[in-house]
Structures are given as structure tokens and as C-alpha cells.
């Protein structure tokens, strides 16, 4: 699989999501409450995707929602949760405790080194830590290597080459050049190591505008791009909007209650709406535009989080 050279990669969101097959090894861009590829996550659930093996660094509602919808077989992240503020990830936790998903918990730095091995075209790379940690028990695929120069023994990790990575960008052009705002988290590394990049963007604009803002991920790595305003909601996509803490809190409550309440959330926001336009309507224009007013003043910004 080489570079993607089509001059125009714009597709509707539902077509972009078809690039993710059942059982695929899927990397998730963004992290925690920032720039999660939520429109793609919701579309995968609408399309009934199953048995996904999902990898990422530190994640939240993206992974939890996919688990809640029964789309995931294997979770391989360094963290899944809602931080100290909203606590454990309810659907992820329940599935892990019941054994209905396999959790191959990993470490941010190990994942980084595995992605680099894939980017470099190398069969493994060594990592400095992990020995002495029970994380080793979760990864029978790791090996050991003795350094030929220092004789040190190090843990060796295999390349991580996702079938596809889902990324939400602030800006894109028709060739798939993407501009992201920091933190990029692992998006650049995922883009280079994966076979395919599928992107959504707040706005698709001319190449000059993306280049002026700065191209974070080049179009030749990107297979498809779809314009989806508020495509990261309820996570943030600064400077366009802050994260929607009340929405996340409502989700965590529903997911913790499980059964009927969780089914109700899924129906109301995901499967019961035909597309993202429907999603934005249910969330409400007023709520969405309020998230964009974070820059009015520190008082307004703080007010979004209380």
C-alpha cells in the first residue's frame, strides 16, 4: 500500500466509514477530551461495525461508545476513562469486568515505539521500561533483545501498523492535506504508520488556506476526507469549540446506568438519527454555538466547565 495520490478525496461521511471493515485494526486520533473522531465513531455504530481491534493512547467517550454499541472485540489503549472529573469509563469497565472485550492495555511510549517501528520499516524496536510491570502479562507478543554494544537486556516490541486511523482535523483541502492544532497526540505517527488515513474536518477549504495554517498531515497519506462540522463533539476542536462537559457527564450517567438508559442515549444521539446533521439538531444549535464562545472571556470559558 503506497501513497494516496488522487487529486480529490472528498467523500460523504457514510462512504468514508465504509473504508473501515469489520474486524479491522483501527487507530483513534486525538485523546481524552480533545479532537476525538466522534463523527466517524458514530457513523461506524450506525453502520453496525463489529469486532474492531481499537488502538490509541489515552481515550474516553470514543472507545466507551464503541464498546457500548458492541463494535469492539479488542481494546489496546494506554487509558480509557473520563479523568478524575467524571471517573471510570462505564461501558468499557463493564465489558472488561465481564470479559466481553479483551483489554490489551498498553503504554503511550510503547505504542509510540511500535508505530515508529512500522514507520521505519523495522521488525522491532526496543523500549527502555516495561520490565517489572505486569503490563508484560497482557502482551505475550513482546520479546527481549540483548544490545550488541552494551549487553543490556531490553523489551522488544513489534511494529504496529493499523489498517486505518480515524482523524478529525480543523481544516482540510480536497487532496486530504490536514491542519491540526496542538496537541497532535499520536495523530502524526498514526498517519505515517497506518495503511490508510480517513479524516473528517470542520471545514474543507482551498490548499492555500491549509498551507498557510500549516499542514500537519500531508494529503499523500490520506485516503478520504469528509467535511463534518462539530465532528469531534462532545470532545473539543479548538479554536472552533471547547469540549461539552455537560454532554459527557450525561453520557457517563447513562452509560453507568446501562441497559435502558444507555440504549436511550445511543438511540437519541447515534442510531436514531440518520446522519451527523441529525446529530447536531438533537444536540441543539444553541448548545453547540455556546461551546464556540469560549474565547469571549475567561469568565465565559470557565463557565462552560462548571
Amino acid at each position: 500500500m503506497g501513497f494516496h495520490l488522487d487529486p480529490d478525496k472528498r467523500v460523504p461521511l457514510d462512504r468514508a466509514a465504509t473504508l473501515v471493515a469489520d474486524g479491522a485494526l483501527v487507530a483513534l486520533g486525538g485523546g481524552l477530551s480533545a479532537r476525538l473522531p466522534m463523527a466517524l465513531v458514530r457513523e461506524l455504530i450506525r453502520q453496525g461495525r463489529r469486532r474492531l481491534h481499537v488502538v490509541g493512547s489515552a481515550h474516553g467517550i470514543d472507545v466507551d461508545l464503541l464498546v457500548a454499541a458492541g463494535a469492539i472485540a479488542v481494546c489496546e489503549e494506554s487509558y480509557v476513562g473520563f479523568e478524575q472529573d467524571l471517573g471510570l469509563a462505564p461501558a468499557f469497565r463493564r465489558a472488561a469486568e465481564r470479559g466481553t472485550i479483551e483489554v490489551r492495555e498498553s503504554c503511550c511510549d510503547t505504542i509510540l515505539m511500535q508505530l515508529r517501528a512500522a514507520e521505519f520499516g523495522l521488525p522491532f524496536l526496543p523500549v527502555r521500561g516495561v520490565r517489572g510491570s505486569d503490563i508484560l502479562r497482557l502482551h505475550p507478543e513482546y520479546g527481549e533483545v540483548r544490545c550488541p554494544f552494551t549487553a543490556e537486556t531490553l523489551v522488544a516490541v513489534p511494529p504496529l501498523r493499523p489498517d486505518i486511523v480515524l482523524i478529525h482535523a480543523l481544516l482540510a483541502d480536497r487532496q486530504g492535506n490536514l491542519h491540526l492544532e496542538q496537541p497532535y497526540v499520536l495523530d502524526e505517527r498514526f498517519a505515517a504508520a497506518s495503511r490508510n488515513v480517513v479524516a473528517t474536518a470542520e471545514r474543507i477549504v482551498g490548499t492555500e488556506e491549509v498551507a498557510a495554517a500549516g499542514i500537519t498531515i500531508p494529503g499523500h497519506l490520506v485516503a478520504a476526507v469528509s467535511e463534518v462540522p462539530f465532528g469531534a463533539h462532545p470532545s473539543s476542536c479548538y479554536p472552533a469549540y471547547a469540549y461539552d462537559r455537560p454532554h459527557l457527564a450525561d453520557y457517563v450517567r447513562a452509560a453507568a446506568a446501562g441497559d435502558g438508559e444507555l440504549a436511550c442515549y445511543l438511540d437519541r444521539f447515534v442510531t436514531g438519527v440518520p446522519n451527523e446533521e441529525g446529530y447536531r439538531k438533537v444536540v441543539g444549535e444553541e448548545q453547540l454555538s455556546a461551546l464556540g464562545r469560549w474565547s469571549d472571556s475567561t469568565k465565559v470559558w470557565k463557565g462552560l466547565f462548571t
Binding site: 493512547s57 489515552a58 494506554s78 471510570l88 472488561a96 503504554c107 527502555r128 521500561g129 516495561v130 517489572g132
Partner: peptide, 17 residues
Amino acid sequence: SPKVKLGGGGGGCNLAA
């Protein structure tokens, strides 16, 4: 299976080394 699955360690198991 655990009684409680916690969130996970982020980058800790390499950083702590």
C-alpha cells in the same frame, strides 16, 4: 476478570523507569 477495571496507566510503565 477483575472486580474493578481501572482506566489504565497512560505512559507510566516506561516513564517510571
